[in-house]
């Protein structure tokens, strides 16, 4: 029993161990890595992935998946960018309008996914794979693959902060806090966990399963848009590859954070840990000077590790469930 306890402890806290190991490794390789500036930078970079990973957590909790977040980021940033091309809107109000336009785009994008999944009943990975490709197609067709420049007021928004905390981190904190409250303190949130565990039982228990499934994809779409419009405010120029492949980072972050691909388990906090880890590895590889061709392979290996751990954890839980005998 103690051995299996230990194994479970390891599985449960694997991310923390990996986190420490990776941190120490890069630190030893490049001592500058331990610097306050470097760490602050990692947290800032992690916040974009993290915000979207929070949205992904909602989807994963229902045992779904959203592969289209990268294209969603692109389209949302593009919508904000087009609004800001209007000279009359190149001011504070314009920034607000642009943000609203970007976020609405993300919500619509998420709603399209949700519609195909909930109403047409098509498998989530296929729907979002199709919208991943089609979404970027729509975007590049509209921009004709030209870049979009963002005016100074928007860049100022990107560089702003609250009490000295950079804007992206503030946004991330707000999103995580809101998600945490929704997931743990509202009926809607608790019902998401129920749906992910057993959708059929949820339906019979009187939970509006379709409505909940629909909502999580919209929430994920919104989070992708938040990530898109904030990240682009830092970069200042939208090019064709903005957001490409981000679905990998986001899913990795969520799963490393303890959210299961099999549904019903996960927290908003997990996204913080997971995204920091992903970003730390990415920044660390640049710090240490890993061959750029090798970097995606390292990331792939980390995703692999994440899903492997998740699967082992899930299989273990299932076994425990099956073994439960009638207690005295």
């Amino acid at each position: 029993m103690t051995r299996s306890r230990l194994a479970e402890l390891l599985l449960r806290n694997m991310t923390v161990f990996i986190f420490l190991a990776v941190f120490l490794y890069f630190g030893v390789q490049a001592p500058r890595f331990f610097g306050v500036e470097s760490i602050a930078n990692i947290v800032k970079q992690a916040s974009f992935i993290g915000v979207i990973a929070v949205g992904m957590t909602f989807v994963l909790l229902t045992a779904g998946i959203d592969l289209s977040v990268g294209s969603n980021m692109y389209l949302s940033a593009m919508a904000a960018g087009y609004v800001l091309q209007n000279p009359a809107l190149q001011n504070g109000w314009g920034v607000l309008v642009a943000l609203l336009a970007g976020l609405s785009t993300g919500i619509v994008f998420g709603a399209i996914n949700a519609f195909c999944i909930v109403v047409l009943r098509i498998t989530p990975f296929l729907v979002t794979l199709a919208t991943l490709v089609a979404g970027r197609g729509v975007g590049t067709a509209i921009t004709e693959s030209f870049g979009i420049e963002y005016p100074p007021p928007y860049l100022a928004f990107g560089a702003s902060g609250l009490f000295g905390i950079p804007m992206p981190i503030v946004v991330f904190a707000v999103v995580v806090l809101a998600a945490h409250i929704v997931l743990s303190r509202t009926q809607f949130g608790r019902q998401i966990y129920a749906v992910g565990r057993d959708p059929e039982a949820a339906r019979k228990a009187g939970i509006a399963v379709d409505r909940i499934t629909f909502s999580v994809y919209v929430i994920c779409g919104l989070c992708a848009a938040i990530g898109g419009v904030t990240l682009i405010a830092l970069i200042g120029r939208l090019n064709q590859t903005f957001g490409v492949g981000k679905e990998f980072d986001v899913i990795t972050a969520a799963v490393l954070g303890g959210t299961s691909l099999f549904g019903g388990a996960g927290t908003a906090w997990g996204a913080v840990v997971g995204s920091s880890l992903v970003q730390m590895v990415q920044s660390g590889m640049i710090f240490v000077g890993v061959n750029i061709y090798l970097q995606p392979m390292v990331l792939a290996a980390i995703i692999f590790l994440a899903i492997l751990i998740d699967s082992l954890r899930n299989g273990r839980l299932e076994k425990l469930r099956r073994r439960r005998l009638r207690p005295d």
Binding site: I65, L67, F125, G245, F248, I251, L261, N291, Y293, L294, P296, M297, L299, A300, A301, I303, F304, I307, L308, S311, L312, N314, G315
Partner: peptide
Amino acid sequence: VFIARFRLPPFMMTLVTLMLFSSAAIW
């Protein structure tokens, strides 16, 4: 092997190998 032995969801496993092997070929 990983899908059968560790019950990884096929789309996820092959998404990982898609990334891994396409970057390996480019490398």
